[in-house]
Design a protein around this nucleic acid. Structure first.
Lengths: 335, 335
DNA sequence: TTGAAAGCGCTAACAA
DNA sequence: TTGTTAGCGCTTTCAA
């Protein structure tokens, strides 16, 4: 059976309080006695139960991470950064892939609450704002990453999606494009919404626009990007430039283009968003708006831990600048 | 403050035992009383503490997943499958990226033990077998995925790496190649070792071999694959075919080739392993030996849960067949 | 069918 | 400096 604090105490001839003290580095006791107890713990392979500790009021040192899909490279990189910084600060992370479904998110949130996690990082869109409001009302620390929730103050780390969308537009405009298509995620995903808004705004500034039939709403899956891209490409007036709200969709578009014999970038320029590993390895490599994923992950964790350790109440909203990375999926428009 | 079982009991005018029963669907009590209690729980937003439940002997319904790097697409897909099936069966998963460092793995293992996880899935190479032996000795359920640990019986789900290596060799041999290079991970990674062994065996069967200077040992990072590939490509007798132990390394090799102006597959054929999303989007797309990641993830979880719920002792070792997926990174050798 | 009470492994007063 | 003791929120006999 597993050794408990009682076993150690008995074996060492001290009280459990003393053992507890050496485990937590508290109290003053002779180095000799401490070493002795340490030795006993070693012998008994004693592993203090964080479960029991948590029950007495300590934290669980566990946080939850909600993302649409951990196998999506963007969220995989975010997760890695969160895990890294969490671990560094003494917290473990439980992953929760929501598939962008409110139902799943809600169930996961409930579960995390039951597991008494110390905080939750949300990187997934949640349509029903009630869910988030209820969560916040519970006074369990929450921080958002790569997603916004504007109707309530929450710690947030995002890239300026609107500016990112504008960057994409400006790049395409400089290349002479005048007709545009968009592969976006559902409007409930705040980041995609902003990106599209930024793109449209920049176009509008030049007296241009995107027609409704050229704006395709997709799932966040590659396959759906491909499907919707096929649809888009087969319309009568195919645009000369395509903006994809993330690399996954862009990869789908790339595949659709290949299937239809559309040459990238000669026949069609593509700008994507995120700049994950995918953007650098595709054929051709994708021009993409980069998000500093690693840094963002580190920041949310710090924000969250700051809140739950220092109970500070000023909610921060950190907005990082996106960066255009030009590769080979964009070129001057063919006259 | 959070509602406890006492609050519910008091409010409902029953004992905590009764509340406990309705939470767990045990005991027989009138539908009326049950509904009443359910209603109170709703009102109080009662969320039973799994921490407290775990302390009384119940499980934590949490498992740990050790992988080298969750941001690596292969492990991201494995993680997604593990999370999915875990969630389906009622378990949460804590991710642990070890960077292939024994030290990190050991610390994570200790932590998971303290958190009293119900079981651990290991998908990372651990050099020091003592660590694993100690873990197994503790009678905490363990299952391996995509990695082997042969000196002790453990539940294991792997692809037949040896056969996979042979497949790669056979494909290259059929294309007429006679000189080979290898980008492998460290020998401590059992899967890579077996893949290389399979490749070499198949070559040997044809009277061929790989010279030592053509076998490069890499980190599991893309950058290192590139670095080692550059080294390899700049040798006097550049091989006409390259086998990469995983997609990440192959992507690195692709980049090295591009940098040196080596055409793939005209100047060099590349076969990689894993068939992650990367293989399908690179330029050119990679011929790769596929592992059924999703299925493997589901299987380990089932194996692990079977062990920890039914305390069955016969350790299973499930070996799945790898599958050659031909894309455009391989072609007939140029005479 | 329901309740009282012991106990899970630990922390944190409070005493000694 | 060290020990005693009362919880933390739940499950689980055992009685009623």
């Amino acid at each position: 059976m597993k050794a408990t604090i009682y076993d150690v105490a008995r074996e060492a001839g001290v009280s459990i309080a003393t053992v507890s003290n050496v485990v937590n580095g508290k109290g003053k006791l002779s180095k000799q006695k401490r070493d002795h107890i340490l030795k006993i713990m070693e012998e008994l392979e004693y592993r203090p139960s964080m479960i029991a500790a948590a029950l007495t009021g300590k934290k669980t040192y566990t946080i939850g991470l909600l993302v649409p899909d951990i196998s999506n490279p963007f969220f995989a990189e975010i997760a890695r950064a969160v895990e890294e910084q969490g671990h560094h600060r003494g917290y473990s992370v439980i992953i929760c892939s929501t598939d962008n479904q409110d139902g799943r998110a809600e169930r996961y949130l409930d579960l995390l609450e039951q597991k008494r996690v110390d905080g939750i990082i949300i990187g997934t869109g949640i349509e029903n704002t009630e869910i988030l409001k209820r969560l916040l009302a519970k006074s369990i620390p929450v921080a958002m990453i790569a997603r916004e929730f504007s109707s309530e103050p929450v710690h947030t780390v995002v890239v300026d999606d609107f500016i990112g969308g504008m960057h994409a537009a400006q790049h395409l405009l400089e290349l002479g494009h005048t007709s545009f298509g968009i592969l976006s995620e559902s409007k409930k995903v705040s980041s995609s919404r902003e990106r599209v808004r930024g793109l449209k705004q920049a176009l509008k500034d030049e007296g241009l626009s995107v027609s409704d039939e050229n704006l395709m709403i997709c799932d966040y899956k590659m396959e759906d990007g491909k499907r919707k891209a096929l649809e888009l490409f087969q319309q009568v007036d195919r645009p000369s430039a395509l903006f994809c709200c993330n690399d996954m969709l862009a990869v789908g578009a790339l595949q659709a283009a290949k299937e239809l014999g559309i040459q990238i970038p000669q026949d069609l320029s593509i700008v994507s968003f995120d700049n994950t590993i995918l953007a650098s390895v595709t054929d051709p490599p994708l021009t993409s708006i980069a998000q500093p994923m690693e840094y963002m992950g580190k920041l949310v964790v710090d924000l969250l831990i700051q809140e739950l350790e220092e109970e500070q109440t000023v909610k921060q909203r950190i907005v990082l600048p996106p960066e255009l990375v030009v590769r080979q999926s964009t070129s001057e428009v063919r006259k």
